[in-house]
Design a protein around this nucleic acid. Structure first.
Lengths: 163, 163
DNA sequence: TCAAAATTGTTATGACTTATAACTAAATGA
DNA sequence: TCATTTAGTTATAAGTCATAACAATTTTGA
């Protein structure tokens, strides 16, 4: 049973739902279903590192963009500023990052990863890559690239985000 | 500025984040970003019909699978049963669906769409398709099919859902 | 047959996520 | 200078999602 064709079928006595013709034709529906799989897997993958999706993303972004401001990070991650505070708090409390003063702007903090932060990001990323590989092993690399290109195209058009 | 290459660049005096090398290499990251775009758009698209993503999905599934039970729908939508109750309540209160008794099982309800429900589903679906078209217009149909096929492949492998 | 187990839908509730309003401190700029 | 804007924060509300427990019913198997 590779693809769903019928909307309903019978096994013995019980009716089993097989999706919906209409929804099956919607791109966003497939996007959501695939997203669910990735999200559940990612959650489990990050659990050993005591990271959530957002804290992981923030950590990696800080590692690769030293000196980043919270507001910039919030904007990049499409997260509201107040919510970014607690994410940063979490990472700072675990001493994975530091809030350093910015000489040119005393309101702002420059975010920097500590050595522990960089190491954790590295380890977590390896785990995430491994798990992605497991999910994607049936999709050849060039297909993956093609899909990513399509997704990026969609985002840059529909999202209005120039980044 | 179509694609991000550098992680950080300077415009005038302010540092601007351009994503992250590491995250950019992750399939799930692109999936999530594209998903955000779709989700925000869908939310706006369904607002005039006073439907949310889940109520829309449930309504369409009921329209196309008459007689469906709540638990079957919950399973198909990957939603917990208690949460399905409120979704069904909402649709029933608006008289878009009915909970009909099942002669063979007095515990269960057979879900059926009313005429109003079918009409609303139809109108909403047209709107959703239109909005998807706008988001996807830069992606040629065969690319879309290819992406959907890849997403389905991922789901059937990683998700474990035979459905 | 009939008691135990499982299932359907439900209620109540709590955890977690995300959004909004309002505030302080600092920077900007007319 | 003084009004306006911005960075970060606090408090809080709204929204989403998951868990436990329950009544009614069906199924199971001893």
């Amino acid at each position: 049973m590779t693809r769903a064709q019928k909307t309903v079928s019978n096994i013995g006595d019980t009716v089993i739902v097989h999706e919906s013709e209409t929804l099956d034709q919607l791109f966003g529906y497939h996007l959501k279903r695939a997203m669910n799989v990735f999200q559940m897997d990612l959650k489990q993958t990050l659990k050993p590192f005591d990271l959530r999706m957002l804290t992981y993303t923030a950590l990696v972004m800080i590692v690769e963009n030293p000196g980043l401001r919270q507001s910039q990070l919030a904007h990049a991650m499409e997260v509201e500023r107040p919510n970014m505070v607690v994410i940063i708090d979490t990472l700072e409390n675990r001493e994975l990052i530091t809030r350093d003063p910015v000489v040119t702007d005393r309101r702002a903090y420059a975010l920097n990863a500590t050595l522990a932060g960089r190491r954790l990001a590295e380890k977590a990323t390896i785990a995430v890559r491994t798990h992605e590989e497991r999910l994607l092993h049936a999709v050849p690399p060039e297909r993956r690239e093609s899909v990513i290109a399509a997704l990026t195209l969609i985002r840059t058009i529909g999202g209005g985000e120039t980044t």
